[in-house]
């Protein structure tokens, strides 16, 4: 497979009132063409910061970015605003958790498509309207002709998310970031949107990164999963391998805490006690050590490196489950 997107040793530090806060700590990840990757972690694990920084959305004086992010070999971190803007839409696009705040509330749906279609692709307004209806049909929007004349607040959450997906794919990006695309939606609509994203990825041969806190969401729709914790990738494997041969105690705990329909009724849900590590401090131990049932003195005094189990299954643990 050919490499599309390469993140190498990415580190993002925010300048805050409490001092420097390192949200992403040395993350490396390769995304191949057409591949679907899930990035899973709790609130504050750095998953959203990582994906936004990769898109080039986090910039400015108070954000320190080191490492490298390359799209088709082109370094993104050193691009200026206009240059990175030239890649948005055509090369990479993003959809957000809350489609209501991501869409412009005072413009009709149809006119919001013009920005990408007319300005970016240079279409005439008439062609753009036709293409908008095609795109809305592609995302299985009922009655697209009526929808283009509506304002975002007149649509339901699921329909807004469809509009946003249609906009994101308008210029055929080769990489789509989806940041918690279904968290704000009902479970029935969530299923519809996930099916849709899976179909679109195949149809358009687009690579996709799904960022979520819910392992259940990514299990059926990704090729590989990266588990993030405290700003680091702590486990990275193909989706079947991650579930079948879980190495990190954290991943295991995360899987067990998911309420699922096939669990025995009346069982207590295994919760993960404690809280994630403080992002303003340097990491001198395993970030999960305080919450881990298997932690030893070594875990509390040394920071484990990312280790390869041999088949590309990476983990960050001195004592992986199932042995080394």
């Amino acid at each position: 497979m050919s490499r599309l997107f390469e993140i190498e040793n990415l580190e993002i530090t925010f300048d805050t009132a409490r001092g420097p806060l390192t949200a992403v700590r040395g993350v490396s990840l390769v995304i191949n063409k057409g591949e679907s990757i899930g990035i899973v972690g709790e609130s504050g694990s750095g998953k959203t910061v990582m994906s936004r920084a990769s898109m080039g959305l986090l910039r400015g004086r108070r954000v320190k970015r080191t490492g490298s992010v390359k799209l088709e070999g082109q370094e993104l971190l050193t691009l200026n605003n206009d240059e990175i803007r030239g890649l948005w839409g055509t090369k990479m696009a993003m959809i957000f958790q809350d489609p209501m705040t991501a869409l412009n509330p005072v413009r009709r749906v149809g006119s919001q498509f013009n920005e990408s279609l007319v300005k970016r692709l240079g279409m005439s307004k008439e062609d753009a309207s036709k293409r908008t209806i095609e795109l809305l049909t592609l995302v299985r929007m009922p009655e697209p002709e009526k929808v283009i004349a509506k304002f975002p607040h007149q649509l339901s959450g699921g329909m807004r998310q469809r509009v946003m997906i249609a906009m994101a794919i308008a210029c055929n990006p080769s990489l789509l970031f989806a940041d918690e695309p279904t968290t704000a939606l009902d479970v029935t609509v969530q299923a519809q949107v996930l099916e849709l994203l899976g179909d679109l990825r195949e149809k358009l041969n687009m690579a996709m990164v799904i960022v979520t806190h819910d392992l259940g969401v990514v299990a059926g729709y990704t090729d590989r999963i990266a588990v993030m914790y405290g700003g680091e990738i702590v486990e990275l494997a193909t989706t079947p391998d991650l579930f079948a041969n879980t190495k990190m105690p954290y991943t295991q705990a995360l899987m067990e805490s998911i309420p699922r329909l096939d669990r025995k009724i009346g069982d207590r849900l295994p919760a993960i006690g404690g809280t994630p590590p403080d992002p303003t401090l340097a990491r001198t131990s395993c970030g999960f050590a305080d919450r881990c049932t298997f932690a030893t003195d070594k875990c509390r005094t040394e920071h484990p490196p990312l280790t390869d189990a041999g088949n590309g299954h990476m983990y960050r643990c001195f004592f992986p489950l199932g042995g080394k």
């Binding site: 029935t188 299923a191 519809q192 329909l261």
Partner: peptide, 24 residues
């Protein structure tokens, strides 16, 4: 039934079991 089958299952081997409800 539709609600139950819409719940995502955290298990990649159990896929395509869904009766996805159309529309809203």
């Amino acid at each position: 039934h539709a609600l139950v089958s819409s719940v995502p299952i955290p298990d990649p081997t159990k896929k395509n079991r869904r009766a996805v409800l159309q529309g809203e």
